[in-house]
Nucleic acid binder design. Structure first.
Length: 423
RNA sequence: GGAGAGGUGGCCGAGUGGCCGAAGGCGUCCGCCUGCUAAGCGGAUACACGGUUGAAAGGCCGUGUCGAGGGUUCGAAUCCCUCCCUCUCCGCCA
């Protein structure tokens, strides 16, 4: 989210950014119209208040001197009426401006390929060799049920569609994946592990930009006005909301495992089977707070950290950079990592790593003091490291043997009581 | 869930209707002093917004902000209401 001042000072840049993203630019037209009104009203209000303040002092003095003040009091009540009505008008305008501000997306970084949709995304690199096509591999939900480690009938009985229930080695593998990923990021990549609450307050979800835009896709506990986290990003970004950090403390690296809860409104019929799209899934998330100077460098490292998870698991993947038209609202640049999914016969997203630059930091109001005493917004990055359910799905397919077993990737074995094969 | 205490600047803390954007202290910064260090002395030190001036850094004027929102009042950190948060004790509980 941008501040009013920023929008005013970067008018041309923003018009261009919206065009690059194939967004309609009328939000900006509307913004400038309202901002003009807002400033006129503000000026007028301030004039009135100045007058009232001065008169109030005068009243105090006169009263002490025992003079008559009834005339002034009458004038005051009139002006106060006017102030009230102007305040109301200003409130309405400010509310409208704030709603509009939520609709202005981040400015894409210059290195982002121009394009209208996912068709214009650019493949950056590939790792590993997809070995099997869809013909000789059972989709993960079938092999999972056959092996007795996935039970969608029971999960549906308990909670309806788009949930999963893991049993035995499946359950064990979920835990193993989580621990493996956390250990890797904490021990090797230097992230600080956080174990956060899974329910968050409305203002935190607003500060991170998930509200009001995605309210429909979040689970909401009405009685307490708390939201189930759709991603740990929300908590990790919210962690320092409203704080001013010190330059010497940057960069901060955080990682957290959380279950993620999403209503998946608007994705009806998509990926209805298996582990790919569920209302509740597990994810290990990474978030970085950096100085503006290093954020793009840090983004490359962040992607590499996520890639390493897949490399160690031995899962073929590719990295793509999203085009201007396909990028998420708050991202300035996004890499997606897609894992090879034999049953789909294509790559499927398993991680999304973005630099939001100062966009999210403005919204969450996270600043830092430079060594010379000046203040600036931090840059915030986030990435999945990686989606646990999708990783399991990929393992069940990529590690499938012709006789219907699944080999356990070596790095997971220590986390799985040494089990080498699920059969 | 019940009872109580509290939330003021980077921090501590005073302030119960006007002379309070806020005493005092600590910290920080600048200057002075000083073999070095420490101490001492003088000064500065919240944020946002609007206007104005300037090439800019900034300056000047104003408005708002003492947890948040609302109310009373000519005037609120101070009085009233609602909410949030923290702490202590009790109850309950994995």
């Amino acid at each position: 989210m941008y501040t009013i001042k920023f929008i005013r000072e970067h008018k041309d840049e923003l018009y261009e950014a919206l065009k690059k993203r194939y967004y309609p630019t009328d939000v900006l037209d509307k913004f400038f119209e309202l901002d003009e009104k807002r400033r006129k009203l503000t000026t007028r209000l301030q004039e009135l208040r100045t007058y009232v303040n001065a008169k109030s002092k005068e009243i105090g003095e006169k009263k002490r001197a025992g003079e008559d003040i009834s005339g002034i009091l009458e004038e005051m009540s009139q002006i106060k009426q006017e102030i009230k009505s102007l305040e109301k008008e200003l409130d309405d305008i400010e509310e409208e401006i704030n709603l509009i501000r939520y609709e202005i997306p981040n400015i894409p970084h210059e290195s982002v390929p121009l394009g209208e949709s996912d068709k214009d995304n650019v493949e950056v690199r590939k790792w590993g060799t997809p070995e099997k096509g869809k013909d000789d591999v059972l989709p993960h939900w079938e092999i999972g049920e056959k092996l007795g480690i996935l039970d969608f009938e029971r999960s549906a009985k308990l909670s309806g569609s788009r949930f999963a229930l893991l049993r035995g080695a499946g359950s064990l593998m979920e835990r193993a994946l989580i621990n493996f990923m956390l250990d890797l990021h904490v021990q090797k990549h230097g992230y600080k592990e956080i174990w956060p609450p899974y329910l968050v307050k409305r203002d935190i979800a607003t500060a991170t930009g998930h509200l009001p835009k995605f309210e429909e896709d979040m689970y909401h506990c009405e009685k307490d006005d708390l939201f189930l986290v759709p991603t740990a990003e929300l908590v990790l970004v919210g962690l320092h909301a409203g704080e001013t950090l010190r330059e010497e403390d940057l960069p901060l690296y955080y990682t957290a495992y959380t279950p993620c809860f999403r209503r998946e409104a608007g994705s009806a019929g998509k990926d209805t089977r298996g582990l790919i799209r569920r209302h509740q899934f597990d994810k290990v998330e990474m978030v970085k707070l950096t100085t503006p100077e290093t954020s793009y460098e840090e983004l490359e490292k962040l992607v590499a950290n996520a890639e390493e998870v897949l490399q160690l698991l031995g899962l073929p993947y590719r990295v793509i950079v999203l085009s201007t038209g396909d990028m998420g609202f708050s991202a300035a640049k996004t890499y997606d990592i897609e894992v090879w999914m034999p049953s789909y016969g294509r790559y499927v997203e398993i991680s999304s790593c973005s630099n939001t630059a100062d966009f999210q930091a403005r919204r969450a109001n996270v600043k830092f003091v430079r060594k010379d005493g000046t203040k600036d917004y931090v840059h915030m990055l986030n990435g999945s490291g990686v989606a646990v359910g999708r990783a399991m799905a990929a393992i069940l397919e990529n590690y499938q043997t012709p006789d219907g077993k699944v080999i356990v990737p070596e790095v997971l074995r220590p986390y799985m009581h040494g089990i080498e094969v699920i059969e």
